[in-house]
Simulated scan of single mutants.
Amino acid sequence: MNQAVFEFPLNEKVRTYLRLEQLFRQLSQADSAQEDWQYVKFIESLFTLLDLAERVDVRNDLLKDIDLHEKNLDHWAQHPNIDMNALKQAKDNVAGLRDALKNAKKFGSALKEEKFLMSIRQRFFIPGGACSFDLPNLHYWLRQSQQYKQQILQGWLSEFSLMKRAIELTLSFLRERGRFEQVEAEKGFYQGVADDKNEMIRVYCQTDQGYFPTLSGNKYRYAIRFMFFNPEEAGQVAMESMVSFKLACC
């Protein structure tokens, strides 16, 4: 039975976190890059990451969330069955990450000094603008050795390593806040009330039954509607039968 988790953010902050997480997953494929298109795709994703980092003050949001993680760890220390060694290690990791974030420069700021990257950046916003006749300097760069290109890519990625660690930690804590519970959607529709602390809704359901979940709402109330997947339909068609799925409010 095929199943998947669908994640729906309830605020703009978590929406940004999830977008950044996806970008980091795409960028992590750099290690196995061999073909020109893989390097071009990496650079395209890097520019998207840089653009997002410039528009959103991610660091302040991450610092607030990490401070909250520290308080939660202090609270868990009162639990009688807690592994104190593991707790201490977690607290040290969180504290170290917090201090590093406080002392860090703006994410990706050093890449603005990379003249090669900046010379090709605008062309990447044009559909098909990375052709060799548009960017002969990029075409020349792609002809360099694998070792050279890999070294350059890892250097660019290192500018976001701290952000990546903070995003991974914050989303892991967020996901652990919710536990999946079995629920049912009458006629493919489910409505719920979000807790004040809820920031993300996770839906765990089958993917071999011809339907997928959509979510609408806000941090107070939300509604889940299951829709038929039909790539030939111009619009989406709602389910009219009972759907059993698992729900986690994080």
Rank of each mutant, 00 (worst) to 15 (best):
Q206G: 02
V203H: 00
F226C: 01
I201T: 12
F226V: 02
R202Y: 07
D196T: 08
Q206M: 05
R221N: 12
M227I: 05
V203F: 03
Q206T: 01
G235F: 07
I201R: 10
G235I: 03
A223Y: 05
K219I: 10
N198W: 08
Y220P: 04
N198E: 10
P231H: 15
S216M: 04
R202N: 09
Q236E: 11
N230G: 06
R225F: 00
T214Y: 03
V203A: 01
V237E: 08
F229I: 00
R221Y: 12
P213V: 09
I224Q: 00
M200I: 09
Y220Q: 14
R225H: 04
P213T: 11
I224W: 00
L215E: 05
F226P: 01
I201V: 15
F212A: 01
T214H: 06
V203L: 01
R225L: 01
Q209T: 06
L215V: 10
I201S: 10
M227K: 09
Y222T: 03
R221C: 06
V237C: 04
R221G: 07
Y222P: 02
D208C: 03
L215Q: 06
A234F: 11
Q236S: 10
K197T: 02
G217N: 13
Q206K: 07
Q236L: 12
V203Q: 00
R225P: 00
I224E: 00
G210Q: 00
A238I: 11
K219D: 15
F212T: 00
Y220D: 14
G217D: 10
D195P: 05
C205Q: 07
D196K: 14
A223E: 07
R221M: 10
R202S: 14
R202K: 14
Q206W: 02
Q209P: 03
Y204I: 06
F212M: 03
S216Q: 07
N218I: 07
A223K: 09
Y204W: 14
K219H: 15
K197Q: 04
G217M: 12
Q209F: 07
R202V: 06
Y222S: 04
N218M: 09
E232A: 15
S216H: 06
D196E: 14
N198D: 13
N198P: 03
F229E: 02
N218F: 11
G217T: 12
A234E: 14
S216V: 05
L215W: 08
M227A: 05
E233D: 15
A234N: 14
A223W: 04
G235E: 09
M227G: 03
D196H: 14
F212E: 01
G217Q: 13
M227Q: 10
